[in-house]
Design a protein around this nucleic acid. Sequence first.
DNA 1: TCCTTATTGAGATTGAGTCTCAGTGGAAAT
DNA 2: ATTTCCACTGAGACTCAATCTCAATAAGGA
Lengths: 141, 141
Amino acid sequence: MVDKSLKVLKDILRKEGLRFTSQRQSVWDEIRGSHEHRDAEDIYMCIRNNDVRVSRATVYRTIDVLVKNRLVRKMEVGDGRSRYEPRLDDEHHDHMICEETGDIIEFFNEELENLQEKIANDHGYTVVRHVHQLFVKPFPE
Amino acid sequence: MVDKSLKVLKDILRKEGLRFTSQRQSVWDEIRGSHEHRDAEDIYMCIRNNDVRVSRATVYRTIDVLVKNRLVRKMEVGDGRSRYEPRLDDEHHDHMICEETGDIIEFFNEELENLQEKIANDHGYTVVRHVHQLFVKPFPE
DNA sequence: TCCTTATTGAGATTGAGTCTCAGTGGAAAT
DNA sequence: ATTTCCACTGAGACTCAATCTCAATAAGGA
Ligand SMILES: [Mn+2]
Ligand SMILES: [Mn+2]
Ligand SMILES: [Zn+2]
Ligand SMILES: [Zn+2]
């Protein structure tokens, strides 16, 4: 599993004509190791707490490569800090954000996906990507 | 129409315990006068081009009041600048953003709205607000 | 008109993210 | 293994939207 993820990273770097470095591996390992939706500062600090020397600039630069090559997904929740999550299985999902707890719940609904594609088509467009976020509150009681 | 919009603004300011000022009227007039999705800098510059003296700080502060009181809707398109649109009739709609032309097309689909509410309910939540943006490309030919 | 105090504006500040560039190190070639 | 080249890194400067500060201004009630 670790070997496979390492190979995935190396293949991407080769494809992009980039060199394999310990910093790039650290960033990918850090993101890959958690299913949470974390900001760059959190990823940066966690890597450093593992006694790995890396700079913010390199974290940001590496994330860009990972996002471009679909190993990582970038999302904005509206607070000015981008969040990142690994795309391990690469199955699409959208997000429900609880405004009381900050919890992020993932969901996928085929019907919803088809419907939005249909709506775009009716306007003469194809959907390239989409953002669908439900800001929610738990039911009372 | 102008009188009515003026009254709406004055009522809101009174309710909030805020004073009516020419700057606040200018900001509301500027946003109200266009159906586009504009950023703060654009709104600011247009007001000043009409020879009204106003500062960026006041534009931002006034927009906050208007957004809080649902006269204006705030949205992010992902480029780091918030966009604002008037909520004249206050009918909800979502956005389709053309990645080739930058055009923003508005749409509303009852079925979509109901479906997302149902999805949230199934997880034990109520939808407080939502963001649904389709980044699209025109069909070829 | 007077008086209190909310509002304003110039400019400083914040903070996420980007850029610069001299020094470092990956890896291909020998 | 050694050399060589040049991509990569990191400290810190920089960007830019947005917020904050605070002295001067102007609502608007008395
Ligand atoms: Mn909607
Ligand atoms: Mn709109
Ligand atoms: Zn979706
Ligand atoms: Zn997710």
